[in-house]
Simulated scan of single mutants.
Amino acid sequence: MSPLALGNSRSQRQLRLSWPDGREQLLDHAELRRQCPCSQCRAFRLRGMTPMVDSRVRVVEVVTQGYGVQLVFSDGHERGIYPWAYLLSLA
C-alpha cells in the first residue's frame, strides 16, 4: 500500500504521509535517520548500537522509488530506501 500524499516539512522536521485507509502519519526526520534501512545502518542496529544522529538533521530531498522512498538527509546520508510498509510500521 502506498500513501495517497507525501509531504516534507523542513521547518518542523517532519515527513507527513496520508494513507488510503485515512491514517495520517507524522515521522520525525531525526528518527527516520536513526531507523534508516540501508545495510550499513541495519548492521549497526543489529549489533545493538544506536546511530548517532544530530537532532537538527533534516530531510532535504525525497525521491520516490515506486515501492518506497529514498530520503536524502542534511548530514549527507542518502543510502536508504524506505519501503512504504516500513514507513507505516514506524508509526
Results as ranks from 00 to 15, higher is better:
residue 65 Q to N: 09
residue 35 Q to T: 09
residue 81 I to P: 04
residue 36 C to L: 12
residue 62 V to A: 05
residue 12 Q to V: 07
residue 35 Q to M: 13
residue 12 Q to F: 13
residue 5 A to S: 12
residue 51 P to D: 10
residue 7 G to W: 04
residue 82 Y to E: 09
residue 11 S to A: 12
residue 77 H to W: 04
residue 50 T to N: 15
residue 88 L to K: 07
residue 51 P to M: 08
residue 72 V to H: 12
residue 46 L to E: 14
residue 89 S to W: 05
residue 36 C to Y: 01
residue 23 R to E: 10
residue 17 L to K: 01
residue 9 S to L: 09
residue 89 S to Q: 12
residue 71 L to E: 05
residue 60 V to S: 04
residue 48 G to V: 01
residue 36 C to P: 01
residue 18 S to F: 10
residue 54 D to I: 02
residue 40 Q to C: 11
residue 60 V to Y: 03
residue 89 S to I: 07
residue 65 Q to Y: 04
residue 58 R to I: 08
residue 85 A to T: 02
residue 52 M to I: 02
residue 53 V to H: 11
residue 57 V to E: 11
residue 10 R to Y: 08
residue 20 P to Q: 00
residue 20 P to T: 02
residue 17 L to A: 03
residue 79 R to V: 03
residue 6 L to A: 11
residue 86 Y to I: 12
residue 50 T to I: 14
residue 72 V to I: 11
residue 58 R to G: 02
residue 47 R to A: 14
residue 5 A to N: 12
residue 62 V to I: 06
residue 13 R to S: 12
residue 14 Q to D: 01
residue 73 F to V: 01
residue 25 Q to P: 08
residue 16 R to M: 09
residue 57 V to W: 15
residue 83 P to C: 05
residue 66 G to E: 07
residue 28 D to P: 06
residue 35 Q to K: 15
residue 53 V to Y: 10
residue 83 P to Y: 04
residue 68 G to A: 13
residue 42 R to D: 02
residue 35 Q to P: 05
residue 79 R to C: 01
residue 27 L to H: 06
residue 30 A to Y: 03
residue 28 D to L: 08
residue 62 V to F: 01
residue 42 R to F: 03
residue 17 L to S: 06
residue 68 G to Q: 09
residue 50 T to F: 11
residue 47 R to T: 09
residue 87 L to Q: 05
residue 48 G to K: 04
residue 21 D to E: 15
residue 78 E to W: 07
residue 77 H to R: 05
residue 19 W to D: 00
residue 49 M to Y: 13
residue 5 A to V: 08
residue 32 L to T: 02
residue 79 R to I: 03
residue 75 D to L: 10
residue 50 T to L: 15
residue 9 S to H: 09
residue 44 F to N: 14
residue 58 R to P: 06
residue 32 L to N: 05
residue 32 L to Q: 08
residue 22 G to S: 11
residue 13 R to K: 15
residue 23 R to G: 07
residue 45 R to G: 00
residue 16 R to I: 11
residue 56 R to C: 06
residue 35 Q to G: 02
residue 68 G to S: 13
residue 39 S to C: 05
residue 59 V to D: 04
residue 77 H to F: 01
residue 62 V to C: 02
residue 29 H to K: 01
residue 45 R to E: 00
residue 22 G to T: 12
residue 80 G to Q: 05
residue 39 S to I: 03
residue 35 Q to S: 14
residue 71 L to I: 09
residue 76 G to I: 02
residue 11 S to R: 14
residue 87 L to E: 02
residue 14 Q to S: 08
residue 59 V to A: 07
residue 43 A to R: 14
